[in-house]
Write a protein that binds this DNA or RNA. Structure first.
Length: 587
RNA sequence: GCCCUGGUAGCUCAAUUUGGACAGAGCGAGGCUCUCCUAAAGCCUAGGUUGUGGGUUCGAAUCCCGCCCAGGGUACCA
């Protein structure tokens, strides 16, 4: 927003240094002055002083940096585009006219509304594949991270200017499905799924595992069923199709509650055949080694690349019995994606344990001559564990089901609404509880670095205070509650007539940062930048709310502050929207 | 063995484009603020040798090397 001022300042600095024969660094890095009540930009002179030191002069770098900064401050201080100029501990701080800055920021938000923070279209199509649940299994909190993270990354990247294709990849075949079918045929034949389908599917799967553990002899029956499936026995296929749909319908319900949608659905079963074709092709090209029937089909990637140290190791492309495994499918899936879309990137939101598998699959495709393979990117994230670093696993019984979490969170949220705002209408309370409960679930999955393990515990999940989604939602509600009382907002924001309070300047600064954070989050694929921005925005607003009366303020101040509140409400709503979290009007 | 990730306040996490201003929040602890736009809030206090030992640098949580701890991956699981 102040690029021209920055350029001019830089020119003046270079000129000044040149005149005095002081060696100048190639670039100056500009940052914001740590907030002290006014908005400004800042650069350090340490580099400049260090250059002098290296050129032979005996100088104390911090002292010299401060000296140069002082000289520059005196020099630049005469200019009018800065309201104030100072030198502090080796930093040159240039302060803007806060009034004009404020007006610019607010005007921009109120003009762009929902688009405030949006980047210019980049003309790049990017596919983001995420969630990838297995059919015939439960959907637990461990599965939630990919879904929530992937959704938010899509929202952020789309807002940043990418053309995003949202993809899902269902695990609808494999041993787990056969075990489920076996249990169903023998003990639940003809049963229809109840209302909470996904839980029931998961229960039947857990039951299958239990029966097989209690009586290992039954494994034989499962193998027979697998063989029937492989022959495409019509009865088995029909049952598979029907039950698979039950799972998919259950997932649909959950995605709807979570407000997550997909543009393109893939299934393991879609990729199976093409995967096998690619493997034959790899064998023909001499890339893969066919050790069947004694061994599997393998690719010695390190040898093919002539690497001395082991890096990609060995990819198993096909089982010795000729059946497909995960790697087989991934070869095909990548190809399908690039055949169908013109992608500059194909992102896979999958947990960190699969890093090597992806590198193997994509490197193999690269060796096979598919030049798009290098455009595949693994967005890896750490797991969601239970306290004590206990991994969630259906067969261990260490899972928290999504349905249970949503139910508990909304129930808890409803309790709080009843207590805080009993006069709300019943339906509104319900919807608030849903909004707050879901926000509280999503936020912790998004508010930490992708490389950090999320530890799920009920107490923290149901604590709506402090650094959490409800705090941000509440700030939005407060802004809304002020604006509800006025009719017709001043259409053209004007510069404030009063000296801005620190809380006002801080809030304006936070608002102005949102567009940068969107770009940064999109580039780094880090939702953390947006949760931080949203939280800081809410915090600034809450402080402003406490310190600066709006409706009771003198006329001119009131006019200005109303536009600021409207801008803040918009910025908070936009940030929450990027996270897939709703911004409620009341709560 | 080899590879990857993490280790920051009692707990959960940050740290502004990657080396710069006094390492910041929340929870928890102690205290304060509702005749005032929703107190799901705000304010104050206490709490740190950034796992550890070296190195590079004017300057290190951040870069390099060693070590310790935790987790993950490592040919037919996904």
């Amino acid at each position: 927003m102040f690029e021209s001022e920055q350029k001019e300042a830089e020119q003046q600095i270079y000129l000044y240094l040149k005149e005095r024969d002081i060696p100048a660094p190639e670039t100056f890095q500009w940052g914001n002055v740590p907030f002290e009540g006014e908005w400004g930009m800042s650069t350090s002179l340490f580099q400049t002083a260090a250059l002098e030191a290296r050129s032979g002069k005996r100088v104390n770098v911090p002292e010299r940096a401060q000296e140069i900064a002082q000289e520059l401050a005196a020099h630049i201080g005469k200019r009018r585009s800065f309201s104030r100029v100072e030198a502090v501990r080796g930093y040159l701080n240039l302060y803007f006219d806060t009034g004009e800055f404020s007006r610019k920021v607010i005007a921009k938000v109120l003009e762009q509304r929902r688009d405030f923070g949006k980047g210019v279209p980049k003309d790049e199509q990017v596919m983001v594949e995420f969630s990838q649940p297995n059919t015939h299994k439960a959907f637990h909190v461990g599965h939630l991270r990919s879904a929530i993270l992937g959704d938010a990354v899509c929202r952020i990247m789309a807002f940043a200017g990418y053309d995003i294709v949202r993809a899902n990849f269902f695990g609808d075949i494999g041993l787990h499905v056969i075990k489920w079918l076996w249990n169903y045929m023998n003990h639940h034949a003809g049963e229809k799924p109840p209302a909470d389908t996904t839980r029931w599917m998961g229960d039947l799967y857990a039951e299958a595992i239990r029966r097989l553990e209690e009586n290992p002899d039954l494994e034989e029956e499962v193998r027979e069923l697998y063989a029937r499936w492989d022959r495409r026995d019509p009865e088995v296929v029909a049952l598979w199709q029907k039950t698979r749909q039950w799972s998919l319908d259950g997932f649909d319900d959950m995605y709807e509650i979570l407000d997550i949608h997909f543009d393109r659905l893939y299934s393991n079963s879609d990729a199976e055949e093409m995967g096998k074709e690619i493997v034959s092709e790899l064998i023909k090209k001499g890339i893969a080694e066919d050790l069947r029937p004694g061994g599997a089909v393998v690719v010695h990637i390190d040898d093919l690349l002539k690497l001395d140290k082991e890096k990609y190791r060995v990819l198993v492309a096909l089982r010795s019995d000729g059946t497909a495994l995960y790697a087989t499918l991934d070869l095909a899936l990548a190809k399908m994606k690039f055949a169908e879309y013109d992608l500059t990137k194909s992102i896979y939101v999958v947990d960190v344990r699969q890093t090597l598998h992806f590198q193997q699959a994509w490197k193999t495709l690269e060796i096979a001559g598919y030049e798009w393979a290098e455009r595949c990117e693994h967005l890896s994230y750490e797991l969601v564990n239970l306290p004590g670093n206990v991994v969630m696993a259906s067969r261990e019984g260490t899972v928290v089901l999504l349905e249970d979490l949503i139910r508990e969170a909304t129930a808890r949220a409803l309790e709080v609404v009843e207590e805080k705002n009993p006069s709300l209408m019943k339906e509104i309370k319900q919807s608030v509880a849903q909004t707050v409960g879901l926000g509280a679930i999503k936020y912790p999955m998004l508010a930490r670095d992708n490389t950090k393990i999320v530890t799920f515990d009920w107490e923290a999940a149901l604590d709506f205070n402090g650094q959490a989604a409800p705090y941000i939602q509440y700030a939005h509600v407060r802004a809304n509650s002020i604006l509800r009382r006025v009719h017709g907002l001043q259409p053209n924001p004007v510069a404030p007539s009063h000296d801005l309070e620190p809380a006002e300047v801080d809030l304006i600064e936070r608002i102005s940062q949102l567009p940068n954070e969107v770009q940064r989050a999109a580039e780094d694929r880090k939702t953390l930048h947006i949760t931080n921005a949203a939280y800081e925005l809410a915090r600034s607003f809450n402080r402003f709310y406490k310190q600066c009366p709006v409706l009771d303020a003198p006329h001119e101040i009131r006019k200005f502050r109303l536009t600021l509140v409207a801008a803040a409400r918009q910025a908070i709503a936009n940030a929450l929207n990027l996270l897939g979290i709703e911004a409620p009007p009341v709560m």
